[in-house]
Simulated assay, not measured.
Amino acid sequence: MAGATRHLGMDWLRIGAFALLILYHIGMVFVPWGWHVKSEPAIDWVAIPMLATNGWRLPLLFLVSGYASAALLVKLGGAAAFARARSARLLIPLAFGILVVIPPQPWIELAGQHGYAHGLLHFWLHDYFRFGTLDGIVLPTWQHLWFVVYLWVYTMLAALLFAIVPSRLWVRVADGAARRLGGWNVLLLPMAGWLLVYAAFPGHRETHALVDDGPVHLHYLIAFAVGWLLRTRPVLFDAVACCRTGAAILAVLAFVPIVWIACAWPEGGPAWADMVFHGARQVQGWAAIVALVGIADRWWNRDHRWRAPLAEAVFPFYIIHQTIIVVAGWYLIRAGVAALPLFVLLVAATVAGCWAFYLGGRRVGWLRPLIGLQRGA
Rank of each mutant, 00 (worst) to 15 (best):
L160T: 15
C354S: 13
G16V: 09
W35C: 03
H36I: 01
A271L: 10
G376L: 14
V337P: 13
R281C: 05
R89W: 03
W56K: 10
I92G: 05
L221T: 05
G372I: 08
V351P: 04
V235H: 05
I324G: 01
A338M: 10
M191V: 07
G66K: 06
A199V: 01
W306E: 03
P32C: 05
A85F: 04
V240L: 09
G279M: 03
A349L: 12
L21E: 03
G372M: 08
L23V: 12
L367N: 00
L139R: 12
A247Q: 09
W228I: 00
I333A: 12
R180V: 05
Q282V: 04
H118T: 03
W124A: 11
P257V: 07
W300I: 04
L342I: 08
A174F: 05
I249D: 00
P369Q: 01
G193I: 02
I295K: 04
A209S: 14
P341L: 10
F317D: 04
G193A: 11
A174R: 04
L61F: 13
Q282L: 03
I15S: 01
A2L: 13
A349D: 07
A95C: 08
G294V: 05
Y318W: 13
A80M: 14
F82C: 08
H25S: 11
S87W: 00
F18E: 00
D175S: 01
P270I: 06
F123V: 02
V46H: 10
L332I: 02
G9K: 12
D238C: 03
W124R: 03
L145H: 11
F224I: 01
L121R: 04
W124T: 09
I333Y: 08
W45E: 12
V165Y: 06
I289Q: 02
P59M: 13
G294W: 08
T133F: 13
A111S: 14
A85M: 05
W306C: 09
G16E: 02
I48G: 00
G227W: 04
L345P: 06
R281M: 14
V148M: 03
H25P: 11
G115D: 11
G136Y: 13
G9F: 08
A271P: 04
V138R: 14
L157E: 09
E267V: 02
G9Y: 11
H304M: 01
V344K: 12
W306P: 01
I48F: 04
Q113F: 05
W152A: 04
L253A: 04
A80H: 13
M191E: 07
A308P: 01
G372H: 09
I15L: 01
V197P: 00
E267L: 07
A225C: 09
M28W: 00
S65C: 13
H114I: 03
W170Y: 05
I15D: 01
E40Q: 15
P369Y: 02
W265C: 02
